[in-house]
C-alpha cells in the first residue's frame, strides 16, 4: 500500500517527459541568436585582444608585450588612471549617497526627490564629449566661473594653480556623471530600509549615528560595493570626455590606447593589445574584489 502511494506522484512527474525530450534540444535554439551574437561581438573580440597580448607578430607565445606595460611611459598612465577611477568612484559614491539620503530620508519635500531622480537619469547619460564642453565653458580659460572669479572677486583660478586639464579637473568633470549614477542606484536601496529598523534601533537606545553604523550601512554595503565597482569601470574606460577635455595632452590609459589604435604614437601594435589586456585585468580585478566582498557582506541575505 505504501509502495503504491509512493509510485503515483512519480508517475505523474514522468509521463510528460517523453513528449518533452525533442524540445530539450529545441529550447536552446531560442537563445542561439543571442549567444552567437554575444560570442561574435562581445566575447571573441575581447578574447582576441587577450590572446594578442601574449603573441609575437608571427604568432608565437611571448611575455614581452606584458613586460612592456611596466615601462614607465605605460605604467605611469595606468597608475594615474587607477587613481582617477578610484577617486571619482569613491567620491561619487560618497556624495551620491549623501544626496540620496538627504532627499529620501532628510525630510525634504517629496517633489525634490522626483526632480533629483529625473535629473540624475539625464546627467548620468550626459557624459562624453558634450560634458567636456560644458566644463570647458565653465572652468576653462574663458569659462563662466573663471571669468566671474577674476572680474568679480579678483581671483585668478589659473594663478591658484587650477587647470581643467589636470587630475583635479578630470575628477570634477567625471563626478558629473558618477554622482548621478550613484543616486540612481542607491535610492531604491535607501527606500528598502524599513522604518521599523530605525524605530527599533531608537527604542533600544541607539543614536542616529549608531543606527547608521550598525544597521543601515551594513545593509546597504552590498549595493554600495557594487556601485563602487561599476563607477570604477565607468571612469576607467571613459575616453570621450577625457579626449574632448584634454585633446590628448593628459596621459591616462584610454587616451594612450586610443592613440595607439590610431597608430599615432607607439609603433608596436602588440603593446596595444597588452594595454587593452591590462585594462581588462584592472576592471576585472575591481569586479573580483567586489564579488568577494559582496559574498562576505551578504551572508545575511537569502
Amino acid at each position: 500500500m505504501t509502495d503504491a502511494a509512493a509510485i503515483r506522484p512519480q508517475d505523474r512527474a514522468t509521463t510528460p517527459r517523453p513528449r518533452r525530450l525533442p524540445q530539450g534540444l529545441l529550447k536552446w535554439v531560442g537563445v542561439a541568436p543571442f549567444l552567437i551574437f554575444a560570442a561574435l561581438f562581445l566575447i571573441l573580440p575581447t578574447l582576441n585582444i587577450v590572446v594578442g597580448a601574449f603573441q609575437t607578430p608571427d604568432g608565437g607565445f611571448t611575455l614581452a608585450n606584458i613586460a612592456g606595460l611596466f615601462r614607465p611611459e605605460i605604467a605611469r598612465p595606468f597608475w594615474i588612471s587607477i587613481q582617477l577611477s578610484f577617486v571619482t568612484a569613491t567620491l561619487g559614491c560618497l556624495i551620491g549617497i549623501i544626496l540620496a539620503a538627504a532627499v529620501t530620508r532628510g525630510g525634504l519635500p517629496k517633489g525634490l526627490r522626483d526632480g533629483m531622480l529625473t535629473f540624475s537619469g539625464v546627467a548620468s547619460n550626459f557624459a562624453g564629449v558634450p560634458l567636456a564642453f560644458a566644463f570647458i565653458a565653465t572652468l576653462g580659460r574663458l569659462g563662466l566661473v573663471t571669468v566671474i572669479a577674476k572680474e568679480v572677486f579678483g581671483v585668478s583660478l589659473m594663478g591658484l594653480g587650477f587647470n581643467l586639464i589636470s587630475f583635479l579637473g578630470l575628477t570634477l568633470t567625471y563626478l558629473y556623471f558618477q554622482i548621478p549614477l550613484m543616486i540612481l542606484i542607491i535610492t531604491p536601496a535607501l527606500d528598502g530600509l524599513k522604518r521599523e529598523w530605525r524605530e527599533a534601533a531608537e527604542s533600544l537606545g541607539a543614536t542616529g549615528s549608531q543606527y547608521w553604523r550598525m544597521v543601515a550601512l551594513p545593509i546597504l554595503w552590498p549595493s554600495l560595493l557594487g556601485t563602487l565597482a561599476l563607477l570604477f569601470a565607468n571612469s576607467f574606460g571613459a575616453v570621450a570626455t577625457a579626449m574632448a577635455l584634454t585633446g590628448s595632452s593628459l596621459s591616462i590609459v584610454p587616451i594612450i590606447l586610443f592613440a595607439q589604435i590610431r597608430g599615432d604614437v607607439l609603433q608596436d601594435p602588440y603593446l596595444g593589445y597588452a594595454i587593452a589586456f591590462g585594462m581588462i585585468v584592472i576592471t576585472g580585478i575591481a569586479n573580483v574584489i567586489y564579488i568577494v566582498l559582496r559574498t562576505r557582506a551578504e551572508r545575511w541575505l537569502k
Binding site: 561581438f41 562581445l42 573580440p45 575581447t46 574606460g237 575616453v239 584610454p254 587593452a276
Partner: peptide, 15 residues
C-alpha cells in the same frame, strides 16, 4: 559595463 568599450572596438578592428 566591465569591459571598456575601447577594448571591444579594438577587438573588432583586429577580428
Amino acid at each position: 559595463l566591465v569591459i571598456p568599450p575601447i577594448v571591444i572596438v579594438f577587438g573588432y578592428i583586429r577580428m
